[in-house]
Amino acid sequence: MKRALTFAAIGEVGTGLTLLVVPSLVGRWLFGEDLTGVALPIARVAGIALIGLGVACWPGTPLLGMLIYSAAVTLYLAYVALAGGMTGILLWPAVAIHLILTALLVQASCGCAKGKDR
């Protein structure tokens, strides 16, 4: 089981990195079409999620996987809002929620390191 989980984690991280860096290439390979417009930031958020999932599936690191996902999606969504000009009604609340989740996950990881598993 450990080998299968490790293999799956590597696959998810690889796919996530590809979606993050070259989302249109993934769209072309999977669907035969380039990703454009709003599909690009959605694909990148999916890539971030797959990276977090891959790290979480790596044996013994679920908290780290969620922390990586939450912190990365916070930064990316804030970047999209500030530099990309795409701002829907829930974009800034999503940034705020992920920022709070990131802070809670950092706090939980510090507690776990001190033997205070929550």
Rank of each mutant, 00 (worst) to 15 (best):
M1A: 14
M1K: 07
M1T: 09
K2V: 15
K2P: 12
R3H: 07
A4F: 10
L5H: 13
T6H: 02
T6P: 00
T6D: 02
T6L: 11
T6M: 05
F7R: 15
F7G: 14
F7I: 15
A8C: 13
A9W: 05
G11I: 01
V13R: 04
V13W: 03
V13D: 03
G14H: 01
G14L: 06
T15G: 05
T15M: 09
L17S: 02
L17K: 04
T18M: 12
L20S: 14
V22S: 10
V22L: 11
V22C: 04
P23Q: 08
P23E: 04
L25V: 11
V26E: 03
V26C: 04
V26W: 01
G27K: 00
G27R: 00
R28A: 02
R28H: 05
R28V: 04
R28S: 00
L30N: 03
F31V: 05
G32E: 08
G32C: 07
E33M: 07
D34C: 02
T36D: 08
T36Q: 11
G37L: 12
G37H: 13
G37V: 10
V38N: 09
V38F: 08
A43P: 02
V45W: 00
A46H: 00
A46Q: 01
G47A: 04
A49D: 06
A49C: 06
L50D: 02
L50V: 02
G52I: 07
G52K: 05
L53A: 15
A56S: 11
A56Y: 05
C57D: 14
W58F: 14
G60W: 08
G60K: 07
T61A: 12
T61C: 07
P62H: 01
P62Y: 00
L63M: 03
L64Q: 09
G65N: 06
L67P: 07
L67H: 06
L67N: 08
L67V: 09
I68L: 06
I68F: 02
Y69G: 01
Y69D: 01
S70W: 08
S70M: 12
S70T: 13
A71R: 03
V73N: 04
V73K: 00
T74R: 00
T74Q: 01
L75D: 02
L75Q: 03
L75C: 05
Y76R: 00
Y76Q: 01
Y76T: 01
L77N: 06
L77H: 00
Y79C: 01
V80L: 04
L82F: 13
L82T: 09
A83F: 12
A83Q: 11
T87S: 12
G88H: 09
G88Y: 09
G88Q: 07
I89S: 13
I89H: 08
L91T: 15
W92F: 13
P93Q: 05
A94P: 04
V95T: 13
A96G: 12
I97S: 08
I97P: 03
H98Q: 10
L99F: 14
L99R: 07
T102A: 05
T102S: 10
A103C: 13
A103R: 10
L104I: 05
V106Y: 10
A108M: 08
S109G: 09
S109F: 08
S109N: 11
G111I: 07
G111P: 07
C112E: 15
C112Q: 15
K114I: 08
G115Y: 12
G115C: 09
K116Q: 15
D117C: 10
R118Y: 14
R118Q: 09
R118T: 12
